[in-house]
């Protein structure tokens, strides 16, 4: 990759201990991801896609190596610092949407915003509920859900819920959006719509999207694809999209 590196992984390994057995989830991985890219992470089950996302989003910490986000090493942050990091730097889109069931669509978006505040017209950070509400409405409009603002998740379809989740992830203006199987729980048509939306938003906002998926076709719309392969030692490839047609999953 070239340009400004948003994410740098330097010889990152992750081991889990299951009973007396030490299992390697990721081994000696190094990569760089630039700002504003739409990165797709592909590979069969068990190759460490989710582990990689967890490490980048500071949900988990590496056993070895360093992870630099915007030049800051997040490998050894405390639990509290990692929460702060996620709050400001990461937007999450989950496979099962993970909306808070007691909150309406707009409130789910506001939930994320309330943690970081919104930048108001004077350029300062505001935690005023009116400002937060206005921003949340704007984002719901961007994802095409103005008619579902005051609906609870249980009153919405899966696609609608995932749109809310996307709005929640992007509204707080984080540099990185992490999505783990965002279409895994949606039908094909809805999944395509959601991917399109994500791609559009990537273009509009210039946020870096990192999406883990089993769906090889998704790699077609990626700026970059990272392929994790099974084997004695995990390797990674950064595959230009023109080569993707050769990939069979």
């Amino acid at each position: 990759m070239s340009g400004l590196n948003l994410i740098n992984l330097e010889n990152v390994s992750k081991f889990y201990t299951m009973g007396e057995v030490k299992v390697s989830a990721l081994s000696d991985l190094s990569l760089e991801i630039d700002v504003g890219k739409f990165v797709v992470l592909i590979g069969p089950s068990g190759t460490g896609k989710s582990t990689l996302l967890n490490l980048i989003s500071a949900i988990d910490t590496p056993s070895k190596g360093r992870i630099l986000i915007e030049g800051v090493d997040i490998s050894f942050l405390t639990r509290k610092q990692r929460a702060q990091f996620r709050r400001h730097k990461i937007g999450f889109i989950f496979q099962f949407f993970n909306l808070l069931p007691t909150l309406t669509a707009v409130e789910n978006v506001e939930f994320g915003l309330a943690l970081v505040g919104v930048t108001n017209s004077s350029g300062s950070i505001s935690y005023d509920s009116k400002d937060i509400h206005a921003t949340a409405l704007e984002w719901l409009e961007k994802v095409g859900l103005t008619h579902r603002v005051n609906h609870f998740p249980s009153q919405m379809s899966g696609g609608e819920q995932q749109r809310v989740a996307i709005a929640r992830a992007l509204a707080k203006d984080p540099p990185i959006i992490i999505a783990d199987e965002p279409t895994g729980n949606l039908d094909y048509r809805t999944g395509v719509k959601i991917l399109k939306l994500m791609k559009e938003l990537n273009k509009q906002t210039q946020k870096t999207f990192i999406i883990a998926t089993h769906n090889g076709q998704l790699a077609k719309i990626a700026d970059y694809v990272i392929s994790l392969q099974m084997g004695g030692v995990e390797t990674y490839d950064q595959i230009p999209k023109e080569d993707l047609d050769n990939l069979i999953w």
């Binding site: 989003s57 949900i59 639990r79 509290k80 929460a83 702060q84 990091f85 996620r86 709050r87 400001h88 990461i90 999450f92 989950f94 099962f96 993970n98 808070l100 069931p101 939930f111 994320g112 943690l115 970081v116 929640r168």
Partner: peptide
């Protein structure tokens, strides 16, 4: 638990 985990993942402090 999933709701709680989601809130914590989204950056809610302990």
């Amino acid at each position: 638990s999933r709701e709680s985990a989601t809130m914590l993942t989204l950056g809610l402090s302990d």
